[in-house]
Amino acid sequence: MQNEDVSFFRLFGSIFAGIGSIFVVTGIIVGVHTRSLIGKSISTSGTVIDLVRHTSRDSNGRSSTAYYPVISFTSNSGKPIEFEANSGSNPPAYTQGQKVEILYNPQEPESAKINSWLDLWFLAVMHTGMGSLFVVIGGIPLVISFLPRK
Rank of each mutant, 00 (worst) to 15 (best):
K113A: 09
M130D: 02
E4C: 01
G61E: 07
Q96S: 09
G138N: 08
H54E: 15
G61L: 10
F8K: 02
V25M: 13
W117Y: 12
E108D: 13
L123F: 09
F8V: 01
F83A: 09
Q98P: 11
E101T: 14
I137E: 07
G129L: 12
S45D: 13
S116Q: 00
S72R: 15
K79I: 13
S14A: 15
S56C: 04
L103I: 05
F12H: 07
N86Y: 08
G13Y: 02
V125M: 09
Y68N: 03
M1F: 11
G88N: 06
I19T: 08
Y104Q: 00
G20M: 04
Q2M: 04
S111M: 09
W121F: 14
V143W: 14
W121C: 03
Q107F: 06
E110Y: 07
G46L: 04
A66V: 13
I144P: 01
E108Q: 09
P106D: 00
S63Y: 11
E101W: 04
A93N: 11
S7M: 10
V136C: 08
S59K: 11
V30I: 15
G31W: 08
T47M: 11
E4L: 08
G78Y: 08
S111N: 14
R57F: 14
S77M: 08
L103P: 07
N60C: 05
A124W: 05
S132F: 15
D119K: 00
S145Q: 00
I81F: 12
T26A: 14
Q98Y: 09
S14G: 15
A112V: 01
I42C: 03
G139E: 05
I19M: 14
S111T: 02
Q2K: 05
L51S: 13
H127K: 01
G78Q: 06
R53L: 13
N105P: 03
L142C: 10
Y67T: 03
N115Q: 03
R35Q: 14
N105Y: 00
V136P: 11
S43I: 02
A85K: 01
V24E: 07
H33N: 14
V100G: 08
G20Y: 03
V136R: 01
H54P: 06
D119S: 13
T74N: 10
V135M: 15
V6P: 00
F9N: 07
S116F: 02
I38K: 11
G46I: 05
I102D: 03
S63E: 14
G97Q: 03
V48I: 15
K99R: 12
T34I: 13
S75N: 03
L120H: 06
F146V: 00
T26W: 12
Y67E: 10
R149S: 12
Q107V: 05
K113Q: 11
V32Y: 13
E84I: 10
G88M: 07
K113D: 01
K79Q: 15
H127I: 00
T26L: 13
T128A: 15
I29S: 09
V6H: 01
I114F: 03
R57E: 12
S145I: 01
V143C: 08
V30R: 12
S21K: 00
I144V: 14
P106V: 02
V125L: 12
T26Y: 12
S145Y: 01
V143R: 01
A112Q: 01
Y68K: 01
V125Q: 02
S7F: 06
P69R: 02
V143G: 08
P91Q: 08
I137T: 11
G131H: 06
I71Q: 04
L123V: 08
V25W: 14
F12G: 02
T65C: 06
I19S: 07
G61M: 10
I137M: 15
